[in-house]
Each structure stands twice: as structure tokens, then as C-alpha cells.
Nucleic acid binder design. Structure first.
Length: 494
RNA sequence: GGCGACAUAGCCAAGUGGUAAGGCCGAGGUCUGCAAAAUCUCUAUCCCCAGUCCGAUUCUGGGUGUCGCCUCCA
């Protein structure tokens, strides 16, 4: 049983898919007019994990995420640079993919674009006009009439009177109600346009998501989501126009999922404030998986304060899990090449391995992990079970390596099962998949390191600690960490 | 002004009507030539007040504080 917090009801609900064994999701994508900042990344990481979890449970997932590739901001950016709007949107769509790939986000099934959905958008607006939910102004603008829609405001829980009290609405005398929003915007001179029954123009901000989600997912689908700031007006307006066009209050998305904001110094990160961090810049200093891991250490609905310090901390925590991952791989390697079982252990303190307890624990933690994820995708809790498993794995590993315990034949199966469980968790969270494999010169580095380590080992044999320590210290300042273990010297990049 | 969210150890962060997961940092121990890594032990009565209850951090009411939406925004 999966429970999800539905913004519409403001409570956790038991998830019932529209079709057994299938999940359909529409996530509001980006307007590609600049590179993604860290706040942009959160919803996509969140949805990526949700998708991964549904997959793990055996659901067939259909995931649609749009690009709003024609919009005021894109036009502004294009004019500023003297290039076409297509050039801007293509450039930043490419930037989007580059960043999201680095964050291990799996591709959506379809990435529809506004510019490719114009006929559907026009058709939908026409339907709204025909049904009396929309009206055209003389200049060619078409607006949605909120007064024609008695249920308007149900997602964000506000009513028209309250909102007008705020008086922070766009001034346009021509609108019947200040809250009416544009479905179609008449083209001004030198603006890109499409032909329509109302003249040359382009879609307003909200209509595109309605048209695209209905086109690719049908009149009813399971999830719709995005950042919390989309609740109003974007999603509110999507609901209004979609349900009005379809004439069905139960149509459109069944569950609304919104992620909390990323803040900087507890203040919202926003483009207008200028206090945002580009993902690209984070990636220069930290691996994508670490940035991802950082985001998932907080439950998706809660605000998350971003700081260098916090990312660093995430890096350390991530390394801890990575260590267990490496340890399990090392054991698996030994099992494969037949060196796992050995008899040369320190006989004085050897005990027979009790790996049975380890696997029992792992199975229990796997169940807890699934429970945590099933409760509104609580990645923070789920990750805590990975740490618990990690501790058990590391304990076993160090006992094994030091020869304190002597594994029995059956332990190989147990270890492989524990590894499978750990990898299953890692796969849902989406880590340890995109670990940089060696570049072209890594082979050379490998050989050089072998030589350096060998020289240092000679020094250690001769108890020349001064030289041995100098080598280790110098390597450290060069960003390479040496670890002397009972099984030889390991090295890794800091 | 209207609507809403949150308030848990030095920091980050889960969670439950019956005295609080996990991570980081810190202290001490084991291991190590020394380190590192790993591991073990230790570190909170959950913003304040009132109420309900045998019992509340968890429910209700009030207060205080922080933040968000109502304007492009993930």
C-alpha cells in the first residue's frame, strides 16, 4: 500500500492507480531560457525516485515531462542576444539534459514541447470559447473567465474575493475579472506567432500543460506535480481549463504532488532574487550523485536549505555508503574468483562466521526501506535504513578482512543476497550507477600509483616511516588518499 | 490584507499517544608503525502556555518565531 500526500485534499491518501499495475505521471518541466539551478533539480530528482520506486514494485510507469519552449522569457532572451527563440530553447534544453544526466535522472517517456502542440492547444481554447469559459478581446487575446467556473480555486483553496483583496493582480481593464488569465496571447510586432482563429499569436502560460498532459495521458491520469510555487496559479489554472473543457470535475490528475523549495540562508532561491546556485557549478565541485543524495536526504515536501557546508556533509555521508558498496563488491569478487573461503585466518581468535544474522538484518531493512518509501516517498527515512545496513556490512567486512571470522561455504550465498539488497536500495535512491569510470589516462594513473605504492611499501618494510609518511602526505595534498589495510594499500581520490 | 506550511540535540534530519531513526561534527576505546577507513561507547525530555487523556514531542485551542503563495518562478 502506497500513501501519497495529495495537495488537493491536503492529506495523505492511499494511492489507487486508475489502471491496475500502471502509473501515469505528468511533471511540469522547465522553460528553457537559462541553465537549471539547484532548485530546478529537486522536482526532477523527486519524480525520478518515485518512478524508480514504482518500477521496483512492478508498476508500468508512463512519465511525461514538457518543455515550455516558447514563452515571454525565451523571447526576451532571444532578443537580447539577437538570436531566434528556437536557438535559446534548444541551447537550454541541451543544458537541461546535461545536468539531469549528471544527476542520474532517467529520461521521461516523452518530452513534449509547446511549439509542437499548437494544434491541440488551439483546439482546446476553441472548446473553452465554445462552452463560454473563454472570451476574446479585440486585440486578439483570449482569456479564461474565472467567474464562469464556480469551482475555481479548489486546489490552492482560495476564492476570488480573497484574492482580489490582495490586489496584486495584473492591471488590464479589458479583462472581465482581474483573475482571468490568458489562454492565447496576440502577437506584438516582431514576436513569433502561430495562426489561430483569433489571429496571430501564441499560447498563454498555463494552457500548454493542459493540452500536453491530455494529449499524452488522456482525460484522466494518476499524478501531476512540480514545485510548490506551481500550485497557484499554474496548476489551479490547469485544473480549471482542463475540467471546463472536458466538462468533468473528476477528470485530469487524480493526485497532486508538490515538492518544497530549496532555500539559501532560509530564503527562497529564486531567479528574481538572484540568490540561486546553478547545478553546473555544484557539479564542478561535487559528483552528481552527491548532489542528488543531498537532495534526497530531506523528505521532498519539506523545505531544504542549501549551503556549501550541507553539500560537504552529504559528500561524507555518501562516501560512507560508497564504502559499503565497495566492500560488497570486493566480497563478490572474491566469491567469483574462489578466494572468498580461505583457511589462513588468525586461528587464535577465529570464530565461525554468523552471516545468517547479517542477511536476516538485511531482509528486515529492505522491508523497512519499502515501508518508508511507501509512506509518501520518505527518502530520508529510507536512506537511514541504508546506513544501518551499511554498518552491518562494514562490520562483517572488517572482521572478514582481519581474519577474525572464518566464512563457511553457505556464506557466499548470503553475502550475494545482502549485496543484492544493498544494490536494490541504491537503485531506488539512484546512487552508485553513474560512478565515473576511468578516462583514457586512468590506466596510466593506475600504473604510476602502483609504482609509487610499491616504493612506499619498500620504505615501510625498512621501517623508513619518514619517507613512507612523506609519500602519503604529499599524495594527500595532491588529492589522493592512501589507506593501509591488512589486504594491502588502497588509494582513492579525495 | 487573504491563504498556507513549518518549529525535534552544536548542525542537518526522520518519527510515534506510552519517555525520540539516521547522518555530520565532538569526546573516549579497538584496529594501525603512525594515519586513514572501519567499528564500539557517549551527547535531546522534541518553541511557550492552557486543555483532552492514565499518559502528549505526537491531539485541540491560544501565543511566539521562521518561511512560502497571492507577480515570472521548481
Amino acid at each position: 500500500m502506497i500513501q501519497v500526500y495529495n495537495t488537493m485534499s491536503r492529506s495523505k491518501e492511499i494511492f489507487k492507480p486508475l489502471k491496475d499495475g500502471e502509473v501515469s505521471i505528468y511533471c511540469c518541466g522547465v522553460t528553457p531560457y537559462n541553465s537549471p539551478h539547484i532548485g530546478n533539480a529537486r522536482p526532477f530528482v523527486t519524480w525520478d525516485v518515485i518512478r524508480r520506486f514504482f518500477r521496483r514494485l512492478g508498476y508500468k510507469v508512463r512519465y511525461i515531462q514538457n518543455f515550455t519552449d516558447i514563452d515571454d522569457k525565451i523571447i526576451t532572451a532571444a532578443n537580447k542576444e539577437g538570436v531566434t527563440w528556437q536557438e535559446i530553447s534548444q541551447r537550454y534544453i541541451a543544458a537541461y539534459f546535461k545536468v539531469m544526466d549528471a544527476l542520474n535522472i532517467r529520461r521521461a517517456d516523452i518530452y513534449p514541447r509547446v511549439s509542437e502542440t499548437i494544434p491541440e492547444i488551439i483546439e482546446m481554447i476553441q472548446r473553452l470559447v465554445d462552452k463560454g469559459f473563454a472570451y476574446k478581446l479585440e486585440n486578439g487575446d483570449v482569456f479564461y473567465s474565472v467567474e464562469a467556473d464556480k469551482s475555481y480555486g479548489k486546489l490552492s483553496r482560495r476564492n476570488l474575493e480573497e484574492m482580489q483583496a490582495g490586489a496584486r493582480v495584473e492591471v488590464n481593464d479589458k479583462k472581465r475579472n482581474p483573475m482571468d488569465f490568458a489562454l492565447w496571447k496576440a502577437a506584438k510586432p516582431n514576436e513569433p506567432f502561430w495562426e489561430s482563429p483569433w489571429g496571430k499569436g501564441r499560447p498563454g502560460w498555463h494552457i500548454e500543460c493542459s493540452a500536453m498532459s491530455l494529449k499524452y495521458l488522456g482525460e484522466k491520469f494518476d499524478f501531476h506535480g512540480g514545485g510548490a510555487d506551481l500550485i497557484f496559479p499554474h496548476h489551479e489554472n490547469e485544473i480549471a481549463q482542463s475540467q471546463a473543457a472536458l466538462g468533468d470535475e473528476n477528470s485530469f490528475a487524480q493526485y497532486w504532488i508538490h515538492n518544497g523549495f530549496i532555500t539559501v540562508n532560509k530564503q527562497k532561491m529564486s531567479k528574481s532574487e538572484g540568490n540561486f546556485f546553478m547545478v553546473e557549478d555544484c557539479l564542478k565541485k561535487y559528483p552528481g550523485e552527491v548532489v542528488r543524495f543531498f537532495l534526497l536526504q530531506t523528505q521532498y515536501r519539506n523545505p531544504l536549505d542549501f549551503s556549501e557546508e550541507q553539500i560537504k556533509e552529504a559528500q561524507v555521508a555518501y562516501n560512507r555508503l560508497k564504502n559499503s558498496y565497495d566492500n560488497l563488491n570486493d566480497l563478490a569478487l572474491r566469491i567469483e574468483d574462489g578466494t572468498f573461503i580461505r583457511d589462513g585466518a588468525k586461528t587464535s581468535m577465529v570464530t565461525v562466521s554468523n552471516a545468517g544474522g547479517l542477511v536476516e538484518m538485511a531482509e528486515r531493512l529492505m522491508a523497512e526501506f519499502d515501508d518508508a518509501m511507501s509512506d509518501d516517498f520518505n527518502t530520508a527515512l529510507a536512506i537511514s535504513y541504508m546506513f544501518e545496513l551499511s554498518r552491518d556490512v562494514n562490520s562483517y567486512y572488517s572482521d572478514y578482512i582481519s581474519g577474525k571470522i572464518l566464512p563457511r561455504g553457505a556464506d557466499a550465498f548470503i553475502i550475494m543476497r545482502v549485496r543484492e539488497i544493498f544494490l536494490t536500495m541504491a537503485e531506488v535512491i539512484g546512487i552508485f550507477e553513474n560512478i565515473e569510470e576511468g578516462t583514457a589516462d586512468s590506466d596510466l594513473v593506475e600504473r604510476l600509483m602502483a609504482i609509487i605504492i610499491s616504493i612506499r611499501q619498500d620504505a615501510r618494510q625498512n621501517k623508513n616511516w619518514t619517507l613512507a609518511d612523506k609519500i602519503r602526505d604529499d599524495l594527500k595534498s595532491a588529492g589522493i588518499i592512501l589507506e593501509d589495510t591488512p589486504q594491502g594499500v588502497k588509494w582513492k581520490q579525495a
